[in-house]
């Protein structure tokens, strides 16, 4: 057998081959196909007609798509702030707990391991105007939560995001906590000798030391916010009046309800480019010497 076929390099390719093979057919091929479909008017079944850039022109006229993009941006901003801040505080507080910490970790992480449908049903019930908190307050003569926030166009997006954040921040707590445990204790001891407050220690030691994990969490949040779908779909289906419609939800509706698969592919391609830009942005920062 020729030597190059048994070299270490070749052997590593043998091991990689099954993954590359599967990746090609399961990820790459459909992705490329989707890129091509965005130039067609395919309904998912019959003839495929080439329509050029018509779908892109339609996309920029589509008021629901514009609304959905705006909602995705709001969604991302909310996830970059609220759960991050809450998780940082909780993780930092947890580092000070020596006994029973595992219990708290479990409590915070528990919603993350529950299926999204379970989380949604819990919150739908809590906010139910008859059986939930609203009904209870009404019995006490208090007009509070009489209407479900999922059913009001002013609050639907925030209510759905709240449920998703409630399930998500436990995950952030765990990864921040892991990062905080890797910080050298001697730094805190030195800070103690200097008389640093808790906040100063957090600001000048903890945060800089967990920066790689922190930045990674931000990248994850930004990327995961793009295809967010399940909580919106289960709780509001994008309603009322598209007030909680996000891009993935719009894509689903176009592809599987309206049978505009070509147009839905165009939305998918836009999502792909958006994620590409984000990844590219962080890659540039890394090249510039940022620790990300």
């Amino acid at each position: 057998m020729p030597k190059f076929l048994t070299s270490i390099n070749a052997i590593s390719w043998y091991f990689l081959f099954p993954v590359i093979f599967i990746h090609f057919f399961v990820v790459m091929f459909p992705s490329v196909l989707s890129l091509l479909l965005c130039l067609t008017d395919w309904n998912g079944f019959g003839r495929i007609n080439y329509v050029g850039l018509e779908n892109f022109q339609e996309l920029f006229r589509d008021r629901v798509f514009k609304k959905a993009v705006k909602h995705n941006i709001i969604w991302t901003v909310m996830f970059l702030t609220i759960p991050v801040i809450v998780a940082l505080i909780i993780a930092y507080l947890l580092t000070g707990i020596k006994r029973g910490q595992l219990f708290y970790r479990l409590v915070y992480f528990f919603p993350y391991i529950l299926a999204s449908i379970v989380n949604c049903l819990i919150w739908r019930y809590i906010f139910h105007p008859r059986h939930g908190l609203g009904g209870w307050f009404e019995n006490q003569g208090i007009d509070f939560l009489a209407k479900s926030p999922f059913a009001m166009k002013e609050t639907a997006l925030y209510a759905v995001a709240w449920v998703d954040m409630w399930h998500f921040w436990g995950f952030l707590v765990i990864i921040y906590l892991t990062g905080m445990y890797q910080v050298d204790d001697s730094l805190y001891e030195a800070a103690d000798i200097e008389g640093a407050t808790k906040f100063q220690k957090f600001r000048y030691i903890t945060l800089p030391m967990i920066r790689p994990i922190f930045v990674l969490s931000l990248i994850i949040i930004i990327i995961w916010s793009v295809p967010t779908f399940d909580y919106v779909y289960i709780l509001t289906m994008g309603g009322p009046a598209y007030s909680s419609e996000v891009v993935a939800n719009h894509l689903y509706s176009q592809a599987f309800q309206r049978m505009n698969v070509g147009y839905a592919s165009t939305i998918g391609v836009m999502m792909f480019f958006y994620v590409g830009i984000i990844v590219g942005f962080f890659a540039i920062l890394r090249r510039m010497g940022w620790e990300v």
Binding site: P129, S148, M152, P240
Partner: peptide, 17 residues
Amino acid sequence: GDLETYYSLDWDDFNNE
């Protein structure tokens, strides 16, 4: 009763109501 409650009630809810 109102639009928001209509959006909030499911099959079991409105049949019971």
